[in-house]
């Protein structure tokens, strides 16, 4: 197992949940460790029109000169030399060659439009990672924001003595810490970090529960439960393999 893990790997972002997976260099498909759905890691070369529902891959999509796509594309990088009509979500770079035409929507961190290319689209070009789905690729930055916000909210609520808002914020903080821990931990350190996470969440919820004791404590127990029920999966899977 260790020998395999030290072999060449690469990191891919799940097209379904946005979680990061470490996969073998030459893997063609894999199941996401976070959402358990199948990920396609191959590159698509579209050389002619194919009636597909969409191209979703962790690899690249290249639409060649004679290629035509009338479907959503979800890929790491996209090169268009032919025609694309649909919603494009790319985590890396979009390149539209001189012969390329894109209509529809584009969401990508960077785009290159070479002279002569045609582009008629609603563009969202942002340097931040694109939300491929609900849980975005930029989990960490969102978490940071959420971590800072509930604290200030709780303080404000405590000052205004409004106990009703407490459970919500507590739940948010616990859920965020859960999500934060999950993708980052490697399998070896999972048990350690999970305990650490428990203590963290416990500490946080306690900190938030001071003004309103009852609802926050229930939140705490539920959070710990959910962690304890979810945790064993990853170590088991490793031992089986």
């Amino acid at each position: 197992m260790r020998g395999l893990r030290t072999a060449k790997t690469r990191e891919v972002v799940c097209t379904h949940c946005g979680g990061r997976n470490e996969v073998a260099q030459r893997a063609m498909s894999v199941f996401c460790a976070h959402c358990k759905k199948r990920l396609i890691l191959e590159d698509y070369n579209v050389k002619c029109y194919q009636a597909v529902a969409g191209y979703a891959t962790c690899g690249d999509v290249i639409v060649h000169k004679q290629g035509r796509v009338a479907a959503p594309i979800n890929a790491a990088n996209l090169t268009v030399k032919g025609t694309v009509n649909g919603e494009v979500r790319v985590r890396g770079r979009v390149e539209i060659a001189a012969t390329g035409t894109v209509t529809g929507k584009i969401a990508a961190p960077s785009i290159t439009v070479i002279d002569g290319a045609r582009l008629e689209a609603y563009c969202v070009i942002k340097p931040e990672p694109v939300d491929t789905n609900v849980k975005s690729a930029g989990v960490i930055t969102k978490q940071d924001e959420d971590d800072t916000k509930p604290l200030s909210r709780t303080r404000a609520a405590a000052a205004a003595s409004i106990p009703e808002k407490q459970p919500e914020t507590a739940a948010k903080s616990t859920s965020t810490t859960k999500a934060e821990v999950k993708p980052v931990t490697t399998r070896k350190t999972a048990s350690k970090t999970s305990t650490a996470a428990k203590t963290k969440t416990a500490a946080k919820s306690e900190g938030t529960s001071k003004p309103a004791a009852k609802p926050a404590t229930t939140e705490k127990t539920s959070a710990v439960k959910s962690i304890s029920t979810r945790r064993p999966r990853t170590p088991q899977s490793t031992t089986k393999k």
Partner: peptide
């Protein structure tokens, strides 16, 4: 007619590029 976007630039809106 032509568009050049450097890495790091932000652009949100409808885009119509073509000769």
């Amino acid at each position: 007619a032509r568009l050049e976007v450097a890495d790091g630039a932000t652009f949100i809106g409808k885009c119509s590029v073509g000769p």
